[in-house]
Design a protein around this nucleic acid. Structure first.
Length: 255
DNA sequence: AAAGGCCGCAACCGCGTCTGC
DNA sequence: CGCAGACGCGGTTGCGGCCTT
């Protein structure tokens, strides 16, 4: 949650993100997408490493993120998927629109794992196996920590790729313009004024407007195109906002 | 009311994988 | 084919806040 803010050797900031940093990151990604996480903080005016920015965006700032309030259905899905997939949190998250792997992982460790343990403990209560600490730990390694049920593992691709999944995985990443409460909350973080620094910002080297195109690492998930071209978007002001805006998904050919 | 312990969760770290050259 | 750079993932850490004593 709140690590002591500090700077590492390279002068990059670490620890908890400030609202100001959030605004900068959000404003930049919303406008230009994440064509290269490594370079992004430089252009966004952030003293953070790309990894940190990526994590912050994916786990906290991204639109459509649901936070807390797990439904019974979601929890059951997590439990079932975990049984099948093991600790493949990203795969599990893909089945739960709006949930991040980090959050699911946390929720698993803090709630579901204990709950399951309790349940299985109750079930085992009558059995003679009382050597919980040792046995349980060993078992945990097998079924929870590394935990892929090899029998079920055969069905993994089906589960992951199934387009008919009750909880469509696509919805989480592509439905940018959907406005649930969380989206509104996240979007509320930034205002038009927050783009001001981007307008004024001069990258350390190269041409701000062309360099992204020259990068072989150009990366823009379909999430990020929508806000630039969607007339319904609060950020659409009738003209192209982003140098990337005219690129179609076909051009990107990323997925 | 104060102190100590525990819990939840955001963020960091390190490794594996992917991609381009 | 090997190397390097970037990304993605899972495990772990550590602080703030809540709970218990």
């Amino acid at each position: 949650m709140v690590r002591t803010p500090c700077c590492d050797k390279t002068g990059l900031k670490k620890g908890a993100w400030t609202p100001e940093e959030d605004r900068k990151l959000m404003a930049y990604v919303t406008r230009y997408g994440c064509w290269n996480w490594r370079q992004l903080p430089k252009y966004a005016g952030l003293q953070r490493c790309g990894k940190s920015c990526r994590l912050r965006w994916l786990n906290y700032l991204r639109p459509n993120i649901k936070r807390g309030n797990y439904t019974k259905e979601e929890e059951e899905t997590i439990i079932n998927l975990h049984e099948t997939l093991g600790n493949r949190w990203s795969a599990i998250a893909a089945q739960l629109p709006g949930r991040t792997d980090n959050e699911i992982k946390n929720h698993w460790h803090t709630n579901l794992k204990k709950r399951l343990k309790k349940k299985s403990g109750e079930a085992k209560e009558t059995s003679s196996d009382d050597d919980l600490s040792q046995n349980d730990k060993g078992q945990e390694k097998d079924t929870e920590e590394t935990g892929i049920n090899t029998q079920n593992a055969a069905t993994i691709p089906e589960i992951i790729e199934s387009p008919t999944s009750a909880l469509s995985p696509q919805a989480s990443s592509s439905d940018f313009s959907t406005t649930d409460n969380t989206t509104a909350t996240n979007m509320d973080l930034i205002s038009d004024d927050d783009f001001a620094f981007l307008e004024a910002y001069e990258p350390p080297s190269g041409n701000f407007w062309t360099e992204p195109f020259l990068s072989d690492d150009y990366f823009m998930p379909n999430d990020f195109l929508a806000p630039s071209v969607d007339p319904d978007s609060p950020f659409f002001d009738g003209e192209i906002l982003s140098p990337f805006a005219f690129i179609s998904m076909e051009d990107c050919n990323l997925y």
